[in-house]
């Protein structure tokens, strides 16, 4: 990992969000006793390295009416799994898409795709869309709906300066 202590301070300062002021990067720079140019170039470098995936607004999909979601899981032939996983991940209603190891005999599924919709019926329709993309490379599938949140804590990086 090639981020330094200053990058980590920058991460700690912005992981709660950007300040809503005309010069947000300049404002963050002031907090950290850096220049705006340094903040901008460090952010761009972290975007380049993939440490920052994007700087953007995240809609609350619950507030916008997408209140149903299901973890769809698929048993996809290994040789086709990467190609098909990439296709499924590109769908606009899939928020997370991963290849994971099977746990045979309990668990034959290797592709996980979180599906979102306004209703469970809509989620089921989207599940059928995914099945159509996977076609004969898929040997079986299931969908797991969450019935209760048992624990939820944000993933936050410890501030090494704190």
């Amino acid at each position: 990992m090639n981020i330094d202590a200053t990058d980590r301070r920058l991460i700690a300062a912005t992981q709660g969000g950007l300040p809503l002021t005309p010069e947000p990067y300049g404002e963050v720079a002031k907090w950290l006793s850096l220049t705006e140019d340094e903040v901008v170039s460090r952010l761009n470098a972290m975007i380049e390295k993939g440490v920052i995936r994007r700087i953007a607004l995240a809609p609350n999909h619950y507030a916008l009416g997408m209140t149903a979601n299901g973890m769809s899981v698929w048993d996809v032939d290994d040789e086709a799994a990467e190609r098909l996983g990439a296709e499924v991940g590109r769908l606009s209603f899939v928020s997370h898409c991963y290849l994971r190891p099977r746990a045979l005999p309990d668990w034959p599924y290797n592709l996980f795709a979180m599906l979102h919709g306004a209703t469970r019926e809509e989620v089921e329709a989207k599940r059928a869309d995914v099945a159509a993309i996977l076609g004969p490379a898929c040997q079986g599938s299931d969908i797991l709906y969450s019935t209760r949140i048992l624990k939820k804590t944000g993933l936050r990086l410890n501030d090494p300066g704190a």
Binding site: R8, G17, M46, I52, P59, L155
Partner: peptide
């Protein structure tokens, strides 16, 4: 734009506005 983003955040229409970090790239 600043005013509206603030309002959207207050009403809960958006959950975050800023950088999205890859926690694994940061070493987790």
């Amino acid at each position: 734009l600043i005013e509206r983003i603030g309002r959207l955040r207050e009403m809960g229409a958006i959950t975050r506005f800023g950088p999205f970090f890859d926690a694994e790239a940061m070493g987790g």
